[in-house]
Simulated assay, not measured.
Amino acid sequence: MIRVLVADDQDLFRGGFTMILAAQPDIEVVGEAADGAAAVEAAERLRPDVVLMDVRMPVLDGVAATARVCARTDARVIVLTMFDLDEYVYAALRAGASGFLLKDIRRDDLVGAVRLVAGGEALLAPTVTRRLIGELLRRGHAVPRLAARLGELTERETATLRQVARGLSNAEIAAELFVTEHTVKTHVSNVLAKLGLRDRAQAVVFAYESGLVVAGE
């Protein structure tokens, strides 16, 4: 059973997401929160698998709340936004979010997203990955201490990380590198373990911040 916490200051959205998710046989909505501080408290108390987190909330904004939830629990956070270029989304990914959803998402896509993230995947479509992370770091520079950590990876793991940062799926990476999907999964797991990253979303951010991938490439 996937345990979900829904955090949104708008009753309509919070109630709607809760109703949709609670109707699924493999999902249990364990709690709701109407502000960021309440979301952090509920996440620590209820220990959900997934938190749906609105990025714009009172008391404590969704970005700060995401950082605290990711630091204090094992929950994976999906940030919710009205606009796919919301600058708050960029910060939320850096704070540890595993992806984001637009609030006008279809019912089936919402359910699928929760299941996907609960399974350890990142919720970043290829086109979104390139635009979102590229814009986040377009004006930035490589962080030396992160660049140095690339030396911990093998050549194949580095190549895999580069493809992950491009937003490619495991199947697409396998085709690019002429290896099996199983091999790609192994490389991705090794990259996450060696670099201490939560999931693919964090791997994408690391690839850009370390200078492995340059925005606009």
Rank of each mutant, 00 (worst) to 15 (best):
V128C: 01
V59L: 00
M57N: 07
L132A: 12
R145A: 11
L46Y: 08
A171N: 14
M53N: 05
V114M: 12
L212I: 09
Q163E: 14
L101E: 10
L5F: 04
L60Y: 12
P58T: 06
E157I: 01
E217P: 00
L60W: 07
A118H: 00
D8L: 08
F83I: 11
V143K: 04
L85P: 00
V204D: 01
E152G: 10
Q24K: 14
R130V: 04
V51M: 01
L197A: 09
D9F: 03
D49N: 15
P144N: 14
V114P: 08
D84T: 10
H187F: 12
V79H: 06
A193R: 15
G216V: 10
D35N: 14
L124W: 13
L5S: 05
E28M: 04
N190R: 15
L80G: 09
V55S: 03
I78E: 05
L197P: 03
R115L: 03
G36L: 01
H182T: 15
T158C: 12
V188I: 15
S189M: 10
V79S: 02
A203P: 00
G211S: 12
L21G: 06
V63L: 01
T186Y: 10
I20Y: 14
M57T: 06
Y88R: 10
A67H: 11
I133M: 07
G99D: 09
R162V: 05
G16A: 13
G16Q: 08
L192K: 13
E135T: 14
A125D: 14
T66W: 02
L12W: 01
T158D: 11
G119Y: 10
V164Y: 08
V30Y: 04
P126H: 05
L124N: 04
G120C: 07
A175Q: 07
G36M: 01
C70N: 06
L102G: 05
A65S: 15
R107D: 13
R139D: 15
I2F: 00
R115D: 08
L52D: 08
V4I: 06
R94N: 12
G112Q: 04
D84G: 08
M57S: 06
L102T: 09
S98A: 15
S98W: 01
V6H: 07
K185N: 13
V29H: 14
A92R: 09
V164W: 01
V214E: 15
T81W: 04
E155Y: 02
F100T: 10
A171Q: 14
D104C: 04
R198F: 08
S210V: 12
V79K: 04
R200P: 03
L177W: 03
D49H: 15
L168G: 01
Q24R: 14
E172P: 03
P25G: 05
S169W: 07
G167Y: 00
Y90A: 13
A75H: 06
E32V: 07
D108P: 02
A95C: 02
R130W: 05
A203K: 01
S210Y: 03
S169N: 05
E32P: 07
E32F: 02
E41M: 10
